[in-house]
Amino acid sequence: MTEENREIPVLEVHDLVRHYRLPRESLFREPGFVYALNGVSFEIQKGRSFGIVGESGCGKSTLARNVMALEDTDSGSVRILGKEVVGLGFDKLRPLRRHFQMVFQDPYGSLDPHHNIGRIVAEPLAALGPLPKEEKEKRVRDVLVSVGLKPQDVEKYPHEFSGGQRQRIAIARALITRPELIVADEPVSALDVSVQAQVLNLMKDLQEQLGVTYMFISHDLAVVEYLCDEVAVMYLGEIVERGLTEDMFNRPAHPYTRILLDAVPKPGRGKKRERIKLQGNVTGQTERRKGCSFQDRCPMAQSVCREIKPPLAPVGEAHLAACHFSDEVRAKAATA
């Protein structure tokens, strides 16, 4: 990676905040909020894969929608290739859309059943303005071939394809504008294992060929480990740990990361081993806590955790964690 590339990351997210207002329960009570994102910051360099993991309700899908400028952001900044997209109007945003595209989770819901494949895949070309018909058709054919489908498939409709093939179509649609960034929200979660591997390998190959950058959202740590160079772990709308995948998965510095890693069932290793376990109940997204967001479930929580919110601080090279006891957690991981 050259110095020049380092200077302008493909994606820069700074202190992103998104709170959804809940409907009022009564006229006289203040409406509540869902605190979906509480100040998220990270950046992704060109050609890298950045994984975002977390459980349901951690805000990872909200993050994807905000990065994609699909909903209004409360505050913070999202820069794509150095250009701010937060607060841009529809007309200003539209020409920028060619640079960032999205792949969705549900291969059945993300393709319009009334459109044929040619039309579905060509849809993002709208952002490029009018193109000659031949150019359009050529691009569709090329991109279908690059994801392992046949050029003749343009005439077919989504219901004629299996889940894995539909996800290839969705990837082709995201690739057609030759974007720098692809935001993929759980793109393989709905697929069978044998098909999931095909799609993951395809995404890897496309990255090698085209140098595209991924923001890859998943609840599956093994999938993230396979595909991503860097990972951020989210909990209740915050990043609690961030680092290079290998370093972080080998020596996690936040207890939540540790617990997530331990909870993944591993085939062929016999029955369950001893490990740290979660306790307590999930803190709702509608409450705000003083101190650490993970305090209610953390097995290591002390009084300091209830008082002072730990900052996301460096614990190693390119490795940050938000925990008062990150050194202890790392030390434990080293001996384990």
């Binding site: 929608r65 859309r97 993002p124």
Partner: peptide, 24 residues
């Protein structure tokens, strides 16, 4: 999600209404 995809593709509300909503 396919409407979300159309918005991510840079289509406006009017176009989405006629291309995706009405046929469905």
């Amino acid at each position: 999600e396919f409407v979300m995809a159309a918005r991510a593709a840079g289509k406006g509300r009017l176009r989405i209404t006629f291309e995706h909503i009405l046929p469905n």
